[in-house]
Nucleic acid binder design. Structure first.
Lengths: 238, 238
DNA sequence: GGCGAAATTTGCTCTGGAGCAAACTTCTGT
DNA sequence: ACAGAAGTTTGCTCCAGAGCAAATTTCGCC
């Protein structure tokens, strides 16, 4: 598959930065240009690591297109997905929390495009550009909340509810309307879903089969379309 | 029980602030005095909420003595403990992550003493006192890491290993040497441990009974002494 | 257009640990 | 010193979901 076409990524670029640094004044536009001039951009294939847990945190990233999974790998080699990050967010901002190694691995869940900057620019951006720090910390806080939610879910819910919840979260964050429902916008395997919900791919497969029979979802290899989100909400609540 | 004696809390005060804002220059001492002059201090009984999830974040806190559990309460009323916070750390710093309500409830795990400031001073402290922001964000990052660890643990380990790990974490963070081992420094019930490890108090009780028979731990009501931490480490690793 | 790899489905078995119930122990307040 | 409350232990049953195995489908590639 060829690289992403320019026409597809550039419109998204504006949108992403808009999310991150809200309304643009003339000054801000100037600042954005300066920031962009210092960035490198790179395309990543599906399933590769952008950076790895424990490695020195040399660069920080902004995801422009695609999705990234933040995973932790256990001593025995199992992967656990901590969260999914959609386009428009900062990534690998170890410096923001005073670390000099990455605390987790970032794997692309789809083809992805990201800008990156050397980490030494972090302090500079925070002090020079108002709102940069604040927005980053909001992101961080949001992620802390998400991870805490996962702890609560895993502690209190059954597998079926967790998978339903995960699906709902995915279509909220990354859903795309299609004719017969909402589709998860990147390739996702049963295995991926199981790593996200702390179960096995077999159990996920059984659940999806069941839901498919009831017309709740529709799935093919690496693709899931949710036809009836409301029914999933009901399921997820007991 | 009477309030905490002055002699016990004041030495801890210095120590705590030292951890948080490392080496003191003359200027810094002056700043600390200014900060302290604006603080209110209060004592809390065991098992009360310092602040509650969802309530407007009006104040932020520094825990001077005791321990606090950060808990989330599910719609069905179950409590899940996200983390334990020892004396010397900031607490309820919603503003740091751009929130204006508390994202979780803080319950005292023991008698506790805390300083607090109205939240509007947050920005001021961050901008006036160098290092205040940085240190806070380190704390935040550390907590994010802890919570992620819990997700990984819950996803990959058996109950026995999780409980062993929790015990080890507790004696590391809050352990106190006693003649026959290391004691957890605050009252902790089987129920508390089960909320920390996503299991039931019955299972925790069975595990502790077993370990007690093997001489690994020694426990009485609300008290646990670990006699052989190394054996627990072995247990926790499979 | 057919081959091999990757992903998915499904059946069967087995067990860790939840759920329920009840007795017992240790504290606290009066 | 006693009564009641709070915390703990232990026995028993049962099942959700993991583990294992094997067949089947789907896709990318030559």
């Amino acid at each position: 598959m060829a690289g992403l076409p320019e026409r597809k990524t550039l419109p998204r670029l504006d949108e992403s930065l808009l999310t991150h640094l809200p309304p643009f004044s003339r000054l801000e536009k100037r600042q954005i240009r300066i920031i962009l001039d210092q960035a490198s951009s790179r395309r990543y294939d599906e399933g590769v690591a952008i950076f790895q847990e424990g490695h020195p945190a040399e660069r920080f990233y902004m995801l422009l297109d695609g999705y990234v999974r933040v995973v932790r790998i256990t001593p025995t080699g199992e992967q656990v997905t901590a969260l999914h990050i959609p386009a428009g967010q900062l990534l690998g901002i170890a410096k923001a929390i005073g670390r000099d190694t990455y605390p987790a691995t970032a794997m692309t869940a789809s083809e992805a495009l990201a800008l990156s900057w050397p980490m030494h620019l972090w302090e500079k951006f925070v002090s020079d550009y108002d709102g940069f720090g604040t927005e980053s910390y909001k992101t961080l806080g949001h992620r802390l909340g998400e991870v805490q939610n996962r702890v609560v879910e895993m502690a209190t819910q059954q597998v079926e509810q967790r998978v339903a919840n995960a699906l709902l979260r995915l279509i909220n964050q990354t859903g795309r309307k299609v004719d017969n429902g909402i589709e998860i916008d990147f390739p996702i395997t049963r295995q991926d879903l199981s790593e996200l919900t702390a179960t096995t791919l077999h159990t996920v497969s059984r659940l999806l089969s069941g839901w498919e029979k009831q017309g709740l979802v529709e799935s093919r290899r690496k693709r899931i379309v949710v036809r009836d989100p409301h029914a999933l909400v009901v399921l997820s609540q007991k």
